Amino acid sequence: MKTALLFASALLSLTATSAFAAGCEQGTPPSLVDGATASQEQMAETMKAVKAYIVATEEYQACLEAAGRGGKMDLEAYNKSAARMEALAADFNKQLKTFKARNG
């Protein structure tokens, strides 16, 4: 049992570092403003930050794909980045809907 856990832990650490070793780095998602209180300028700046994060995430995923061509792609890192990007977009869209409802 301990051997299996050690092996699984070692395997996980290898796959987790494969993206980093390939030079692929995932950026940090931007903070979102509250659509109920944000100014138009704040909402516009947040939209720019969200779009920039999506582009950066797509570049990160392309890097993972390129690194995976020589071996096994880090699917866990790829899927996590996709989920993070989708969640950010969904959360931003909720705040944008709230902002638009407040501002007509």
Rank of each mutant, 00 (worst) to 15 (best):
K2P: 06
K2I: 09
T3G: 12
A4I: 05
L5M: 07
F7N: 12
A8Y: 07
S9D: 11
S9L: 14
S9Y: 10
L11K: 11
L12Y: 13
S13L: 14
T15P: 00
A16V: 08
T17N: 08
T17Q: 13
T17W: 13
T17C: 15
S18L: 06
A19P: 04
A19W: 01
F20W: 15
A22K: 04
C24F: 01
C24P: 00
E25D: 12
E25S: 09
E25P: 04
Q26S: 08
Q26H: 10
G27Y: 06
G27E: 02
T28G: 07
P29I: 03
P29C: 02
P29K: 08
P30T: 06
P30K: 05
S31R: 13
S31H: 08
L32Y: 09
V33W: 04
V33M: 02
G35E: 05
A36L: 08
A38G: 03
S39C: 12
Q40M: 14
Q40H: 15
Q40K: 14
Q40C: 12
E41A: 11
E41W: 02
Q42S: 10
M43N: 03
M43L: 14
A44T: 14
A44V: 07
A44S: 11
E45W: 04
T46H: 07
T46E: 09
M47P: 00
K48Q: 15
K48H: 14
A49W: 03
A49E: 11
K51Y: 07
K51T: 14
A52P: 03
A52R: 07
A52G: 05
A52F: 05
Y53K: 01
V55S: 15
V55F: 14
A56T: 06
E58C: 01
E58A: 04
E59Q: 15
Y60H: 00
A62L: 12
A62H: 10
A62T: 15
A62W: 04
C63I: 02
C63A: 02
L64P: 01
L64F: 06
E65W: 04
A67I: 08
A67D: 00
G68E: 01
G68V: 02
R69T: 06
G70C: 01
G70W: 02
G70A: 00
M73Q: 10
L75V: 11
E76D: 08
A77N: 00
A77P: 00
Y78H: 04
Y78N: 00
N79I: 01
N79Q: 09
K80H: 03
S81H: 02
A82I: 06
A82R: 08
A82Y: 07
E86D: 14
A87G: 12
A87E: 13
A87V: 13
L88T: 10
L88Q: 07
A89L: 12
A90T: 11
F92N: 02
F92C: 03
N93Y: 09
K94Y: 07
Q95F: 08
Q95H: 11
L96W: 12
L96T: 02
K97Q: 13
F99R: 04
K100N: 15
K100C: 11
K100L: 14
A101P: 08
R102N: 15
N103F: 02
